[in-house]
Design a protein around this nucleic acid. Structure first.
Lengths: 206, 206, 206, 206
DNA sequence: TATGAATGAGATTTCATTCAT
DNA sequence: CATGAATGAAATCTCATTCAT
């Protein structure tokens, strides 16, 4: 596919454009509904309503209700993943406290940017809708961490980097999510300090 | 039906007794349904069916569907909490690696004892049904940890025990849950070692 | 797409040609859908899909869904009618067992040629879509039979040829349809013998 | 309702009674809808409406829409079957013209008693809903006819009674249905005469 | 002429909850 | 206390048809 031109002009824009715009409109509407009314009230009719289209039109762009929810989450997931990956690659050179701190910071920042959505996703939605996306991200980050560990022998006491990476990633991820969601009386800076301490200590322990 | 006496027997033991038994029967039925059919199929009718009573009778013991779900989770939560608390009090004297290890062990053990239910609770159920119960448990354990920390000055670099406890509890809890649920290729012993390393390192870091 | 000319060729032959070809394409697609997916799945969208055109284009050639179904049946009906009429005219001279037999044979043959379609038409479709076409055919054959009867006085006991023809045509038609559809354990030859016996006996009874 | 007595009376009447009455009410409503509005308008909501109950209640008595339609047809089918079987057994002794005539008469009478329903069933409904019921009846009658034929050797030219019975039953059934439905300009008496002639001739042909 | 996105009414079915008995 | 029939709102999804481009 991808660009069958007859002559000069780039055809095939109208539907593309329209489709994309419509999909976005629907996702935006879905997000709004999720945020404002919660998952229980997330009905296709309501989404269509908010999107200003007819319920039938929804099904021209999504096969079913679940797909709409998934799309909404995907947008958010991708954003979080991008931000974290960005921070990670920015600090590519220096494995150490700064890298950990910045990555955690990026993660918290990204999660906090849409706390409300995070809350709905984590607390309202059956985790299943989220699971795949989440484990994929975890897997990706874990592999990155393993690579770093392998590149810096001596950083850890153990040579089982897979396990080390698993523990690290799980700990940071869950800590960050809970921090954002539960809003404990801990400042952001302090929280990051703790995360760094946790990781540093873990890696350093002879 | 179940025990309809015609005339002879004196209406033995007030409602208390019956109620208790009935509540248990309903909770058991609810648990079965949750386990066998998943949360989506968890309808009051089905629970009543499995409990061998009429749907109407359900409402004599529970105000609504959510309460039944909550009760099922409560049973499990309590069990987990009891086991962890038990381990903690057993090691009351010795704050240190052994205590951390045994507590984590007890937690993993308790969670693993009903993986299927844990999975349903964590992945199928909207987290809201779980939330209160969970945070209450966390709170309890956190306070315990804080007490320990306060009793042993010098254990930590920081004096903000609340924060330290929060980090510790959250990290261990989430790690344990994920370990049981995701079943990574890490042996139980190894996992516990890592948890101990994580905590020890965190506490030790000057 | 199929036959998209870029520039050279002059818009050959007005709409007539195109229309005719398109109608046939749609009817063919409709027939396929009916056969492959059954009547329940017979949606205009699906037909358009199979025809390789847009649903909107359908309405340039047919006023509505029913008309497409009707057209599909018409093709089949016409085929059957032609075959039967052919057999009848071939045996024009000889009214008698041979004629009855050959006509019945032609009918069975024609019906059997597309059992699958017959089955869908008779069992899946609301008979209404079929009715007019069918009664028209019956009427035609009935008139033919009446003409024969009138031309051969003495063949029947009764002079009410309309009634005789009605009975004859209905009996043979339904018998043939059921024979093809139900596939009873009766050989084709045997079946034809029986039909002849039935008709002969009916006509001969003093 | 219907009198729930406290002591003496045989138990287990209440629900039974209620159920039965409700089922009948629903079937009646379904029949009305089918008759008045046709099959296309036969929606569960409409049936519930006409029955004066809520749509949800329908599903306490029938598993789905199809089952309601089936029940309506069953009532009619049973009635027809009973009448025909009655006529057949009444004339048990005399195999011959009278028996054929009376059976056909009973069939026509039974079909005609609810022409409107027959019309809907035959013309509006996909034949599939009807098929099983119909073939079962045919089978039953066929076996009866075979038994008669076997009991009266010499009645027929052929000894293949299965085939003879098949032809006879199919011919009469279809003729009767079409007679009632198409209302040709043939008197009832005349029609029965013709049926008798058809069968007699068929059986007599050397 | 062709397109195909948009429509929107409406259909079937579920299920938490109630209340007369 | 127990029952269980009745409720009825609401949800998801389909599809024949139209009409602006």
């Amino acid at each position: 596919m991808a660009g069958r031109q007859q002559s000069v002009a780039p055809r095939k824009r109208p539907q593309q454009q329209r489709s994309r715009a419509m999909v976005e409109r629907i996702v935006a509407a879905g997000r709004e509904v999720l945020l404002r009314d919660g998952y229980d009230a997330f009905s296709t009719n309501r989404v269509a309503d908010r999107a200003g289209i007819s319920p039938g039109s929804l099904y021209q762009y999504f096969p079913n209700k679940a797909a709409i929810v998934a799309a909404v989450i995907d947008r958010y997931s991708d954003e979080v993943a991008d931000r974290v990956a960005g921070a990670l690659t920015d600090r590519l050179g220096e494995f150490g406290p700064a890298m950990i701190r910045d990555t955690a910071d990026a993660l918290v920042e990204a999660l906090a940017a849409n706390v409300d959505l995070l809350r709905v996703v984590m607390e309202d939605l059956p985790a299943t809708s989220n699971r795949e996306r989440r484990t994929a991200l975890e897997q990706r980050v874990r592999e990155l961490v393993m690579a770093y560990l392998a590149a810096r022998p001596g950083t850890t006491r153990s040579t089982d980097h897979a396990t080390t990476a698993w523990v690290l990633v799980m700990a940071i991820e869950n800590l960050a999510v809970r921090y954002v969601l539960d809003e404990p009386a801990i400042s952001r800076e302090r929280f990051l300090d703790e995360v760094v301490a946790l990781c540093a200590g873990y890696l350093a322990v002879a």
